[in-house]
Design a protein around this nucleic acid. Structure first.
Length: 724
RNA sequence: GGGCGAUUAGCUCAGCUGGCUAGAGCAUCUCGUUUACACCGAGAGGGUCGGGGGUUCGAAUCCCUCAUCGCCCACCA
């Protein structure tokens, strides 16, 4: 055999991966008598490429898959991507903008075609990255959340929720992004502490008195329809029921008593803008106040805000209002005030709370079993502290706004008749999915028989569809044998920022549609930060591209290095040192193997029994240590303790086997003494078992060596080593 | 405002339910080796384990407190 002195990943990785794939080793070897090991990989979205956190997700899942495969369990990893509604639409809009176009120039249909082109390009890119990472996915099952079959699942889910009465359409205060021009869910709002001002505004009261309120958003006073005070507040008790006069526009508004008002804050009196603040909305509901919309979907002032402000940007309007208040003597005080302001997680525009007609999922019932399975540890979080985080959120969950005013996504299977009837139709939606054109098919309102029916233009929140991933990818709602055999999955590795967005929603929908939790173990890995402790982000220029790392050090080195640094659940400041160490380790494994092979030329395969009398104490020691290592490694696997697993095997292989054992064995083999074949046996045995243990972590270098060892079966499907 | 976590060698971090001279990788220094590997080996230096207090025969490890940093959640205008 001719092995060069250094391991060169580039010579082996692609070739080996291809041969694994071609031989079908990534496909599950179905054995009905065994419980399959299935991972529920979070589908990366198609906006761009994988980042270092994804590299970690995928490495961990691949380690678990490879380990289980070697243990003889049927394994399945369904790869895929999600359509990431807002994010992808933004990307394509940006690309269009370069040629001076907007999506409106193209129209919805053409624009969506453009997005599909984008998707094809980036899905291919992501698939390439996953393969480069060594991920053992069953590529014949590649899924996308807008595939036709997947869309059927989404329609089914929506109709199911609707039939059960869990969906409703309502005018509520939602988070609106004026730039993305869509509603977003609470989870898509990022709160940031900002230094603003607290303006004190004095309102005249009809009886000649006055009342002062404090606000951080003076422009919203244009939409005020009341002033509220706490019912227990004695200093205002005589004012409740009186009428105040709104400055500038002279609207008469009542002073009401409402428990939502804090006694201590500001002046104890609050202006009420029911159309632009969630708390004010609630107050408005309780006191039957008018809701005046003064800010529109572009973040500009409406006609209702008054002629002089009409069309003005909301922040300009703030200045204008403040100026007028000041000039009119209504502004009594301004103080600097730090408060948190919501931003759109996709474009960072300040979110506008807006009264809007949207679809919601009622959480009241759905949340109950999803809490219970985690409480009862039918689903376990690793590390366990995330259990509390999950439960706290679930306990305080609010209804989920699922409609989005986007063009890219699953259009709601909802129609509205001119008579006002809302029609949720699976049948119609499926027809349109199959391209039955609207012209050839006349829809009729089941209530009034009218044909003037229009489909809702909105699409669903991407997470509504992602939440179905563990079973939609297996054919649900059809009762397929795949679904029967592979559901529920076992394991999920992901980042903590996705616990609510995705993990919680999968749990809820898994229980709702399958009556079984979608997975058993949720592993929340470390968040990767750069050396300065800042979040890795390509857009901020603080990211590291895993492809670059793999190019520079090799895939095995990167996988090893990432796991080496991954303390359970801790944040990790990423440094390339660990990856460099991984590269050295790969080389060490390569060279130790080279040594063993060079000294096995005259070795006739023997069993331990035949050479047992010639085993020296060093032989026995390393063979014992080998067994202990296998045993300990399995323990770490069962705890998902990858960092210690990697350290353990590194320590054993490098220091026990290479530094100590090989050095003694070397001498005996050269001297050609009677214990030579015992040494050869020990080298052979220890090397092979070590390669097996290393394979889940460093699949390429170990498989490349295995090829040189001329084994019958490739390492990827060889048997996991045994211990006594 | 609530919650979580961190603070251990120059750097990145291990140290489980308290117990031998506190460990690893990188970096530094010394020596060695060019017939598996210089992407090597042997060894060395370097830490009052954030501050203070407490429990204990004994604490990096448990409790209290302070400080600094980070993250998540949140409808006090």
């Amino acid at each position: 055999m001719e092995m060069p002195k250094a391991y060169n990943p580039k010579e082996h990785e692609d070739k080996i991966y291809q041969s694994w794939e071609d031989n079908g080793y990534f496909k599950p070897k179905i054995d009905k008598s065994k419980k399959p090991f299935v991972v529920a990989i979070p589908p990366p979205n198609v906006t761009g490429s994988l980042h270092i956190g994804h590299a970690l997700d995928n490495t961990i899942q691949d380690v678990m898959i490879r380990y289980n495969r070697m243990k003889g369990n049927p394994t399945l990893w369904i790869p895929g991507t999600d359509h990431a509604g807002i994010a992808t639409q933004n990307k394509v809009e940006q690309r269009l903008a370069k040629s001076g176009k907007t999506k409106h120039d193209l129209g919805r249909e053409k624009f969506v075609e453009e997005v599909w082109k984008w998707k094809d390009e980036y899905q291919g890119h992501i698939v390439g990255q996953l393969k480069k990472l060594g991920s053992s996915c069953d590529w014949s099952r590649l899924r996308f959340t807008m595939d036709k079959d997947y869309s059927k699942s989404v329609i089914e889910a929506f109709a199911h929720y609707y039939d059960k009465g869990y969906l409703y359409r309502g005018n509520r205060i939602i988070n609106w992004c004026p730039r993305c021009h869509t509603s977003i869910s609470d989870l898509e709002v990022e709160h940031e502490e900002e230094l603003g001002s607290l303006w004190y505004i004095k309102y005249q009261i009809e009886n000649g008195k006055d009342i002062t309120v404090a606000t951080t958003r003076p422009e919203t006073m244009l939409g005020d329809t009341a002033i509220a005070v706490n019912p227990a507040d004695k200093k205002f008790s005589d004012l409740v029921g009186k009428v105040a006069i709104l400055p500038i526009i002279n609207r008469k508004i009542p002073i009401v008593a409402d428990k939502a008002v804090e006694l201590e804050f500001g002046t104890g009196a609050v202006k009420v803008t029911p159309a632009h603040d969630p708390v004010d909305f609630e107050i408005g509901e309780r006191h039957k106040l008018e809701k005046i919309i003064i800010i529109d979907e572009d973040g500009k002032m409406t006609k209702e805000a008054g002629e002089q402000f009409f069309g003005m940007d909301r922040f300009e309007a703030r200045e204008a209002v403040v100026k007028l208040l000041d000039e009119g003597g209504w502004l009594t005080k301004v103080e600097p005030y730090s408060h948190s302001v919501g931003h759109c997680s996709r474009c960072h525009t300040v979110v506008e709370p807006l009264l809007s007609l949207q679809w919601f999922v009622s959480m009241e019932k759905i949340v109950v079993p999803a809490i219970s399975v985690v409480k009862k540890s039918e689903i376990k979080f690793h590390p366990n502290k995330w259990k509390k985080v999950y439960l706290d959120w679930m306990d305080n969950i609010r209804d989920w706004c699922i409609s989005r005013q986007l063009w890219w996504g699953h259009q709601l299977p909802v129609w509205y008749c001119e008579c006002g009837k809302i029609i949720v139709s699976k049948e119609w939606a499926l027809e349109e999915l199959e391209n039955v054109s609207r012209e050839t098919k006349t829809r009729e309102c089941p209530k009034c028989k009218s044909h003037k029916i229009e489909r809702d233009q909105d699409v669903l929140d991407t997470w509504f569809s992602s939440a179905l991933w563990p079973f939609a990818t297996l054919g649900w709602p059809e009762k397929t044998s795949d679904l029967n055999y592979f559901y529920p999955t076992m394991f999920l590795a992901t980042a903590r920022d996705i616990i609510f967005l995705w993990v919680a929603r999968m749990i809820m929908s898994g229980l709702e549609f399958m009556d079984e939790p979608p997975f058993k173990d949720v592993y929340i890995h470390a968040t990767v930060f750069n050396k300065e402790g800042k979040r890795m982000s390509k857009s901020l220029g603080t990211g590291v591209d895993p492809l670059d790392l793999m190019e520079k050090y090799g895939t095995d080195a990167m996988r090893f290095g990432l796991l080496w640094q991954t303390a359970q659940g801790q944040d990790m400041k990423f440094g390339e040192d660990a990856i460099l160490n991984g590269q050295r380790f790969a080389n060490k494994i390569w060279n130790a193997s080279r040594f063993v092979m060079m000294n096995l030329d005259d070795y006739k395969i023997v069993t331990r029994e035949t050479i047992k009398d010639n085993l020296t104490k060093e032989d026995k020691l390393i063979l014992d240590e080998l067994e202990i290592t296998i045993k300990q490694l399995e323990k770490y696997f069962s705890r998902y303790d990858f960092q210690h697993a990697v350290e353990l095997i590194y320590e054993f292989f490098w220091h026990n086997f290479c530094d100590k054992y090989i050095e003694v064995a070397k001498i005996r083999i050269r001297k050609n003494d009677k214990t030579k074949s015992a040494a050869q046996y020990t080298l052979d045995k220890t090397l092979k078992d070590s390669l097996k243990m290393l394979h889940p972590f460093m699949p390429f270098v170990t498989e490349a060596i295995w090829e040189n060892l001329n084994q019958k079966k490739p390492l990827i499907i060889s048997d996991w080593p045994k211990y006594q």
